[in-house]
Design a protein around this nucleic acid. Structure first.
Length: 259
DNA sequence: ATGGTAGACCTTCTA
């Protein structure tokens, strides 16, 4: 089973590109982020025609996440628990049915910039809520994958030009520490487990020639529970997609599991 | 030259 995560930066602006990748890569499960539309505006028909079941947690203009799967999605949760006043659509979770069911979450972690505004503590409190929820999910002792745009550069090897990111929320010690704390609950970072080589970037800014200069960062991650990590067989970063027409600034990342 | 691009959408916010 191949499980992908992709921040598409508007599913409607990018629909032909997204569908092209789906047809070429034929993933079994996809976690989308930044769909940038409400549920009613999500182009579900186009994905259903390709054989996917679709669940969304959308929002007008900003954010929005979705899960797509070739097999039915059950036990759907929309929104991260822990703060009923949080109106940002950044989390959806479901169980992918099959011989070995696997629980999958599509995560769009807050960016947090600029540091020094209310956005940064929002990021950190959202990460604390994610860790609290993840702890409960780990207690189920099931195959579990938390995949998405974490908006965290874990280590210096995960950024081409570290000095350009020192003041950025994605590379703050607090952000990186919170990511390590989440991982240390018992998760495996699929990329580090299967590859781990420097330069495994998943995002290149639209500005300042970041893509042609390969000034990227690795911020899209699959975190696997022990029951999922034991079945992990590979990780692929589809970086060529960044060179397509009208690309997202993120590329798809695909984890393979023996399920 | 305090830059540069992209998307939603109504003038500015988010990234």
């Amino acid at each position: 089973m191949r499980i992908a995560t992709w921040n598409v930066n508007s599913v409607n602006a990018r629909l032909p590109t997204v569908l092209k990748w789906f047809e070429e890569a034929a993933p079994d499960v996809v976690c989308l982020q930044e769909i940038k539309c409400i549920d009613d505006k999500f182009p579900g028909d186009a994905f259903e025609r390709l054989g996917y079941n679709v669940v969304t947690h959308g929002q007008k203009t900003y954010n929005g996440v979705a899960l797509l799967s070739k097999t039915p999605l059950e036990d759907v949760r929309r929104g991260l628990p822990g703060d009923d006043s949080d109106e940002q659509a950044r989390y959806i979770e479901a169980v992918v049915s099959g011989p070995t069911p696997v629980r999958v979450a599509s995560i769009y972690l807050p960016n947090g910039n600029p540091v020094g505004t209310e956005k940064f503590p929002y990021k950190l409190s959202w990460m604390a809520r994610l860790s609290a929820h993840a702890r409960e999910l780990l207690a189920l002792e099931e195959p579990l994958i938390l995949a998405g745009d974490y908006n965290v550069i874990p280590e210096t090897v995960d950024v081409a030009v570290p000095e350009a990111w020192t003041g950025d929320a994605l590379f703050q010690p607090q952000s990186r520490g919170a990511f390590r704390a989440l991982k240390n609950l018992g998760f495996t970072d699929a990329y580090m487990q299967m590859d781990g080589s420097p330069g495994g970037y998943t995002f290149w800014d639209y500005q300042a020639g970041a893509w042609p200069r390969d000034h990227g960062i690795r911020i899209d991650h699959h975190l696997l529970s022990p029951q999922a990590a034991d079945r992990l067989t590979g990780i692929e970063i589809h970086r060529e997609v960044r060179g397509w027409d009208k690309p997202s600034d993120h590329v798809p990342v695909v984890a393979s599991l023996a399920l």
